[in-house]
Amino acid sequence: MADPREHVLTGTRGALCVLEWPNERPRYVAVVVHGYGEHAGRYAGVARVLVAHGAAVYGPDHVGHGRSAGERVVVEDFEDVVTDVHTAVGAARSAHPGLPLVLIGHSMGGLVAARYAQRHGGLAALVLSGPVIGDWRLPGRLLALDEIPDTPISPAALSRDPAVGASYAADPLVWHGPMKRPTVEAFARTLRTVEEGGGAGGVPVLWLHGTDDRLVPLPGSRPGVERLGGAGVTERIYPGARHEVFHETNRDEVLADLTGFLDTVLPR
């Protein structure tokens, strides 16, 4: 697979960095929406599989994340992030007009992808990995405190593969500090917005989650996914897996489930 290309677009809060993993003859476009505190470059392994499967893959770094502009991990309004994803989608569609669009959102990116589906539609498929959606109680607990504690995400919570945690801990583009109050407040607002925003317009939804996800517990996500996708949800729950199922010890199984699902929903 060719090295990713970096595009710098105009985002809602300044420069928006978008990675592209190119495919000379794609049959669909996949846009990867990363999670809190990380960046699109962490999804190179997912992109490699999707390119081999026939996708041109794009991944924006959200405001305050990765190489995009903004104070680190400050998201004042997730509607801006949804708009930035739409900008990246526009660039992808301009390069590959007429191809089906798949949106893949992990964790916080699942919240953004869900809201994107509500606002914009036009998806051939929506994939949610450990999505922050439904009854996620962390924002309420943090906002009840006078001061948000300086407790960064534990690398061990991401995967049973210790190499994943080590790479995360050493990554200079990953945020290793505390959550910031404006972002926590924006999480709380957008969880309510998505809950009240209806379904995803009948788009097929694939939900991937680990049973040992301690960052976004599976039971809390379930009602949000079911409200969003209705009868069109395919779920794959992985016993013992932690938060980042795409980086788990059974990642080959997870990625095979992803491409198998896409084979059932994309036009041939």
Rank of each mutant, 00 (worst) to 15 (best):
P217V: 06
T211R: 12
V132R: 14
S68K: 05
G134V: 05
M1G: 14
V233C: 13
V174M: 03
M1K: 14
A156W: 10
F246R: 15
A231D: 15
L50V: 03
T234L: 14
D212R: 14
L19G: 01
V89M: 02
G199P: 12
S154Q: 14
A256I: 10
P182L: 03
R160P: 02
H86D: 12
R227S: 03
H247K: 15
A163F: 05
A186G: 04
E195F: 13
E79P: 04
Y43G: 02
G41D: 02
H120I: 04
A256N: 14
P162E: 05
A114W: 12
G66C: 08
S221C: 03
G177D: 00
P217K: 09
I133H: 11
Y238H: 13
R137Y: 09
V112F: 02
P267L: 07
D263P: 06
A200K: 13
V132K: 10
R137M: 13
L19E: 04
A92K: 06
T151K: 15
A124D: 01
G54A: 05
A200R: 09
A166G: 04
L173Y: 09
P60Q: 08
S94P: 01
A113E: 01
N23R: 14
E6P: 11
F261H: 11
A231W: 09
A52P: 08
A163I: 04
L16Q: 05
V164K: 11
W136N: 06
P152Q: 04
R42E: 00
V265Q: 11
V74P: 00
P152Y: 08
P219H: 10
R42M: 00
R189M: 02
L191K: 09
V89W: 01
H96E: 05
